[in-house]
Design a protein around this nucleic acid. Sequence first.
DNA 1: CCCATTAATGCAAGCGGTTGCACTGCTGTC
DNA 2: GACAGCAGTGCAACCGCTTGCATTAATGGG
Lengths: 344, 344
Amino acid sequence: MAVTIRDVARASGVHISTVSRTFSAPHLVNPDTRSRVLACAEQLGYRPNRAARALITGRTYNIGLIVADIANPFFPPLIKAAESQARKHDHHIFVADTNEDAALEEEVVRALAKQVDGVLLVSPRMSNTLIEQLSREVPLVVVNRQIAGIPAVVMDVARGARIAIEHLTALGHRRVALLGGPRGSWTSREIRRSAGATARSAGAELVVIGPNPPTEVGGLTVAEDVLRSGSTAVLAYNDLMAIGLIEGLLAAGARVPQDVSVVGVDDIMLSRLTRPKLTTVATPTAAAGRAAVDMLLAHGDDRRTNAHIHLQTELVIRDSTGRGPGPHSPADPGDVIAHGGVAS
Amino acid sequence: MAVTIRDVARASGVHISTVSRTFSAPHLVNPDTRSRVLACAEQLGYRPNRAARALITGRTYNIGLIVADIANPFFPPLIKAAESQARKHDHHIFVADTNEDAALEEEVVRALAKQVDGVLLVSPRMSNTLIEQLSREVPLVVVNRQIAGIPAVVMDVARGARIAIEHLTALGHRRVALLGGPRGSWTSREIRRSAGATARSAGAELVVIGPNPPTEVGGLTVAEDVLRSGSTAVLAYNDLMAIGLIEGLLAAGARVPQDVSVVGVDDIMLSRLTRPKLTTVATPTAAAGRAAVDMLLAHGDDRRTNAHIHLQTELVIRDSTGRGPGPHSPADPGDVIAHGGVAS
DNA sequence: CCCATTAATGCAAGCGGTTGCACTGCTGTC
DNA sequence: GACAGCAGTGCAACCGCTTGCATTAATGGG
């Protein structure tokens, strides 16, 4: 049915090994022979069977990409960038969605391990221990997590959270709620740690609410809790929750930003389009996708590298944050368009 | 390195063929032997190498999923549903993004053909002829396109467009602009055809603007054209364009819906969150993803089937549509929450 | 008690490629 | 003119697994 290397060999009158070399070691075959073989291959529509090749070379030219929720707008730009970058290097991408389920993550990594050259674990929910264990079975690159000995791409959300809290305290907010993300999220822990430290040193109080599902509904359902907590500002784990929260606040009769200021994280496309437009910590998702693929392809088989790529975040100030009850700092926050540099 | 069937055979003291049968033809092996083999496999962490299996069986347990733009919010819910459905049947999904490029679509199908059991072509931009040709090389299921002899899942956008136009003419709109989608889009042609016929029979005028890139920017940039056309209502190819258009209209000083009514298509998550909330033709994307996978797995190798699954659309009326300059029909459109049935 | 049947397993070919090694025929060197 | 060296190609084993066929032992019927 399908055309194989043997068909090409027969058509061009050479041995299959010569055809093979025409594709995988061209310098070993006579230019005349090569062009004849290529012509036959072209004409027959021959494409090497990658699975067969992988069987012997051990390289599949496939990459696994595992995310918690494809429908969460944070992920698609990352997936798109990763896929594009992978294809540039002639690799294909398996995408798997784990529904925020750590156990499913493990299962999927194992299921994919044999048919990929490596797996990109994006915002994993698994434990570090488990990730380390899996990295012995298949090359892994982790996005948004730091684990010694495992190559990683991390977005500097700690800095983003710090600048966000500084922005809020400068506006005069003295009690800030933090909407935590899903259990197992490194990003959520980082934000919490950094926001806590920053609030403390600014003399403000941080009220942690969560963990929560990282969705619009997750934000919507804690609106009451936020109001009850007496907070005048909120830093949400991600934009989706922030937007859901705003919905909930408005429904409860609170105004944003007059009564409550809201800051998100991610700067998904959505954030520019809601009313009020969302102030948020922008994360370089596309760059992360590209970088993760590059790392995976670069490291090849030498596991246990310590390469970590840090990508910068920046605060994008829009319309969902305003003055709080306390004194605000002299510098008019309205002047600040964006803190932070560009992703590297 | 990796544990193979031979390791398991050695550990359990049987021939590799018995191990193989333990997994792929359990009824042929003695229950005692089987449990012994399974125990060894379990203990060694053995997983069959699917690529090797595929080489001989011809079944890869992989599916290709090709979309025009992963970052377009229309696709992720479909991808998510497809991936989930595929995994239920123990299949993995290759995702490829073609950047709205028909030539790239062809290339990707060919590249994937050998390592998948079939390809899902979602909203393809290729010609019918080319799709027919490709379907002879690899089983294909097409979403949002009707081609004789090729299994398809189609959303009934024609009906959706009709109801949308009826909604607008009932509100008294006499000149409606239609924002076309990308060149090569079957959906765009369907919407245009149906909207044209409906407008004609309602005595309204349809002004076609396009083709346009199916993005927010695509909508934004034609806002001027829409205003210049004298239209008081717009049906956009998709929600993203509708939302971009609204941005553009507001920027140009027009009010929505007081001056211009806007209807989108897709009902992406975003549409509930913008202000004004978007009136739109909801398409059952998740159902389409599931159905497409099911069709692919069901048909197996018998190509050239005529199975077509039709999924219903419905008009969701929100805040972006209001009365036009002409007489509106007696029935208060405000009563109509949603036309159309539920997706099957 | 013998033979046909059947259940359980082993054997080996082969899926579509890659690759180390052997072989052939040239070239260039001394 | 003999020979080393090399370019170009063929040969065959092998990657991990499946599967048709052969083999063996156990079973049951007449």
